[in-house]
Every structure is written in structure tokens, then in C-alpha cells.
Design a protein around this nucleic acid. Sequence first.
DNA 1: AATATTTTTTAGATTAACCTAAACATTATC
DNA 2: GATAATGTTTAGGTTAATCTAAAAAATATT
Lengths: 217, 217
Amino acid sequence: MLSLAEENYLKAIYHLSEDGTKDVQTNALADSLSTKAASVTDMIKKLSAKSLISYKKYYGVNVTAKGKSQALQVIRKHRLWETFLVQKLDFTWDEVHEIAEQLEHIQSPRLIEKLDEFLDYPTVDPHGDPIPNGKGKIVIKPQVPLDQINEGYKGTIVAVKDSDSAFLKYLEKIGAKPGKKIQVLSKEAYDESMEVIVDNQKVFISKEVSKNILVTE
Amino acid sequence: MLSLAEENYLKAIYHLSEDGTKDVQTNALADSLSTKAASVTDMIKKLSAKSLISYKKYYGVNVTAKGKSQALQVIRKHRLWETFLVQKLDFTWDEVHEIAEQLEHIQSPRLIEKLDEFLDYPTVDPHGDPIPNGKGKIVIKPQVPLDQINEGYKGTIVAVKDSDSAFLKYLEKIGAKPGKKIQVLSKEAYDESMEVIVDNQKVFISKEVSKNILVTE
DNA sequence: AATATTTTTTAGATTAACCTAAACATTATC
DNA sequence: GATAATGTTTAGGTTAATCTAAAAAATATT
């Protein structure tokens, strides 16, 4: 079983490597984990000895298949807990990260199964990030910006481009969260504004908004 | 902020001292925490330096007011999480302890407030043990064995004497859990058996059973 | 290509939480 | 009340995860 520090390193490596596609530098890891380069070197030797990462001196690290699978389990737990905090305990999106950073290290496979069931097997977290399944597989649904969708569409909000906090508040107000069902009733050819049903309520949204909402195909 | 080990020591001292009423020996603590007496001595010096416990060499330790309050916060979290696991995630009574041992160390006052609200402010955990409130106060409701109750009574199950697993299974079957409402419809003078409504269902229970169910006055 | 800069590693310390073995206190027994 | 038995503390050591400072390797600059 991995220690808390090992889990955090593995997760950071996985994220910084952009899902395992490129090698991660020692300094980048040190920054990301708010620690020093020397500490990173120590730990990557340890993870390398456990075959969780591949490491070539002076040339950075990356996760092995084994390490990736472990990282994805931690990410799965993190995202399930975030979903729980927002959907069941009424936290807002921005409050949940730090609490989930702690909860993701709880060791109990049964707890995660039960939590998954309780949340009705969500595929994305409150930010729209995909939740890996129990086998560590990420099912990435094709995402289409809502402004490219036509009248008559029925689907689900998958993610939002959540850079601006005013935009997030607006989405919150109209109930447009990832996971929510959405229908396009009509689309105005002139300004590409739309009438949609989201969260069981009719709303008009401008193209400005619709292009930042990503939905299923 | 206390470390995980410090929290566990404090909790163990609080429990072994029977809520702070008697001093705790070094060896008793070592046994309870599955560690060695020498390690205990190290840690109690540390906790003593932080004024969380009072310690006199060779004569054991006990919690100070400050230490007791911290211990009760951990116990509060433990019992709220156990309640969550049983009520919301459908775990059984015997499965939750170890998971709650981990969850009790999550640091986030807001999380605990929200969890408390989500569970509708329970006063007892699934075992019937009282849940300290946010200020660390334990509201101990007067508990009366059900066999001493008369016809016409309406109240709530507070706790059960849960030594025997077959007994627990029986209680599970009839829905007689701490927190559940209970009514006494009739009592047979001959064998002191009762007809009660519990969990919205009529059941007959023997004195053997009723004396092991504790209810509010 | 030589030198400067940046990045990474190594060497050696530190801290928390644990350990074993030995020394020391307290309590029980004769 | 001396001695044996039990319980506790001290002394010194270990491990995981950090750190600083110095050495070494890779990369950038002139």
C-alpha cells in the first residue's frame, strides 16, 4: 500500500505529464508539490524502485502502467468525493478541492464502491472532469460546444470552461452544471441565441454563453 | 493543529480514562494503540508539553479541559461519519469502525457542519453512542431499558446492548435501530412480552429482547 | 568551443513516530 | 522490611519524509 506522500507524488506526476504523454522535470514536481528538488529526487528513487515510475537521471520521470493505474485510482477517489461534496453537501465548486485532497487518501475499496453507487455512478465531477471507473479507465465522452448544436437536441452537460467566476455564478443561477440534462428548444438564426431547458427550467442563453458550455453529442 | 498520532493518543486516553474520570496507565495505552510502552512515554511527554494532558511520572495521565475538548471533536467526527456510512451508504454496523477511524482525521470544520446538517443533526451514532455537539458537549439522554416501560409509551430507541451478533441481526430485521421511533401498544403481564410499533411495523418482542433495548424516558 | 547558467543529484542533518534493551520506580509477596 | 515481580522511563537507534549546501551534469550564451 502506498503512503500518503507516494500517492501525492504519483498523482502530481500523472497530471504534470499530461496523462503520461510527456516526461516531468524534477523542478516542476518540486513546484507543484511545494517541496524542494532534493526531496523530489529522494522520492522518485523510491517510486522508481517500486516500478511505479520510470526514471532516467537528469531526464525526468513518467508513470509506468502500474503507476498510472494507481494514480487514476486516487484521481477517481478525488473526483467522486468532490461530486459528493457538491451534490450532497451543497458545497460550491471552488470550496471542494482542498477537502477532496484529504478524502482521496482514505483506504477502503468498498467505501468507494458504495459512494459511487450513492452518487448514481457519475462520469464527470463538478468541474466536468471525467471520473475514472473502478478499473482506472477514463471514458471520455465526445464534447461539443453548445453553440454548434441545433434545435431538437437532447443531451447532457459534460463540462464548462470555468475560467471566469461571474460566468460560473451565472451558470449556477440557471442550474447549468455538468451532469445536468439539457434540451435545445429553438435557436435564433440572427444572433445564435438559444432557448433551452436545463434543470427543468426554460432559459434563454446568448452565444457568448452557449459556446462555453460543452455537451454530449 | 494536531497530528494524526496525537489525535489518536488523545482519543485513546479519553476513552480509557472513562471520559476523564480516572487516570490511564502507560501499558494500557500501549495495548490500546498497539504500540510499545516506550513509544507511549515519548508521546505523552509531547502531549503534556502542549497542555493537552496532565502527566505525573509513573502515575499515568489524563486529559486536561483543552485535551478533552479536542478528543471530543475527534469522537464527534468519528460518530458522524459512522452515521453517514450506515444511513446513507448502507453499510452495516460492524463494517464502519475502521473506515471512520480514517475519516475522523479529515480537517475541515465546514465539512463536519455540512455533514451534520445532511444527516439531520443526529444525537447518537449507529451503535447508540452519543455524538458530541459542535462545542464538544455530549447530551446524554436518560436511557431506560424497554422492559421497564408501560403500555401507551411513545419514544425513541437510544441504544442497544450490542454484544451478540445474532441479536443485532434480529434487531436489524425488525428495524429496531438507535434513532428509530418506538411505541408500546400492549404488554403481557404473564411473560412481560410486548407488542410494539417500530420502524412503522407491528412486532411482538420478548422480555429477553426488550431488556436489551434502551429507549428515551 | 569555452564559459556561464540552470537543473539535478549527492551528502549530511533534522523531525516525528516508532523501536529494543537497560535502568529505574512502584507494588506485591514472603 | 527485604526481595521479587511488574510497570515505566531513559538511552540510543531506525525509518520516512523532509531540509540546506555543495557537487555534478545538462543546457544556454557569447
